[in-house]
């Protein structure tokens, strides 16, 4: 069992112990609690403000000075759902995010494993190249991809967008996954292979299942990157494969009702992501403590 998996199971108790150990004079937790509360409010402020704006009646939604006493309405959400293809964009975004995450992992896992188990010049150079790829300006990547996708006749498809995101996120995923593999003792591979597994079988049947939290962590990051990407779909899609971030951006700077709908779309997107963040955060931390940037 990996340390990370252990951490998930034992987590809460360890935490409680830690808290007891860290017991300090009362003033300090008060201070730090206050500080955390302020940070939380500051981090949430844009969302709170937007939520208020989209639940106000349109004529006072963006009034200056702001109107704070009002009868909340969900009309913007209803309009968004019924008068736009928001649903379709959500589906597109979901397909692209899930699809590109799975493919990125299937391709990235073996590569990351090899990079971890066979250090040397080749691996080092590949890792550095990955670093360089990760730092490319988006324009430099996406514009040639636009041309390529036109030539291949796959422009404006979720497939092309997904493929582009797999490539764009591949460097991050192999870096992160490699760091997880490095922490996994090599003896495990050897034991599995003595039992008659080939290396590929060992990887598939023994090692990858032990990497659960690490894979989840990498997957969560891939998913989030794909979910929030703007410039790539802006260039690679027109009508059929539009994603939610793109849709929201095109609603801004239009009429007042559309602006409110854009806010509503942003809140819905945030809601989904919040749900996701709450579920994911425990795994994220557990996985990361084991992996990233050693």
């Amino acid at each position: 069992m990996t340390a990370a998996a252990e951490a998930i199971i034992k987590g809460p108790r360890q935490l409680r112990e830690k808290r007891r150990r860290n017991a300090r004079p009362k003033a300090q937790p008060m201070m730090s609690g206050l500080f955390l509360a302020i940070v939380c409010v500051a981090m949430l402020a844009p969302f709170i403000w937007t939520l208020l704006s989209v639940t106000k009646p349109t004529d006072v939604a963006f009034a200056n000075p702001p109107v704070l006493a009002y009868e909340p309405t969900a009309q913007a959400f209803v309009d968004l759902w019924q008068t736009t293809n928001f649903y379709q964009y959500l589906i597109n975004t979901g397909i692209v995010a899930v699809g590109s995450t799975i493919v990125a992992l299937v391709i990235g896992l073996p590569a990351a494993y090899a990079l971890a188990r066979a250090p040397g010049y080749v691996s080092a150079i590949l890792l550095i190249l990955a670093l360089v790829f990760r730092s490319l300006p988006r324009f430099a990547v996406v514009l040639p991809m636009y041309e390529l996708s036109r030539q291949l006749g796959i422009h404006d498809t979720t497939f092309a967008l997904g493929a582009a995101l797999v490539a764009i996120n591949q460097p991050f995923s192999i870096w992160l996954l490699r760091n997880f593999f490095v922490k996994l003792p090599e003896q495990i591979d050897e034991a599995a292979m003595i039992d008659g597994c080939s290396r590929f079988q060992a990887l598939r049947r023994v090692i990858i299942p032990m990497m659960g939290p690490g894979i989840l962590t990498a997957g969560v990051f891939m998913f989030l990157f794909a979910f929030q990407e703007y410039l790539t779909p802006l260039i690679l899609t027109d009508t059929k494969a539009q994603t939610v971030p793109l849709f929201i951006a095109t609603q801004l700077g239009q009429t007042l009702p559309m602006l409110q709908q854009a806010g509503a779309a942003a809140i819905l997107l945030t809601g989904l992501v919040v749900l996701f963040a709450f579920i994911a955060q425990k795994y994220l931390v557990a996985g990361l403590s084991d992996g990233a940037g050693k």
């Binding site: 939380c40 981090m43 844009p46 989030l224």
Partner: peptide
């Protein structure tokens, strides 16, 4: 943790627009 994570996962252009409204 969940609260602090939100701003990281919202698309930049959307987050920045909300931010600008403030």
């Amino acid at each position: 943790l969940g609260i602090i994570l939100i701003s990281y996962v919202i698309p930049n252009v959307v987050g920045a627009t909300m931010f600008s409204w403030l």
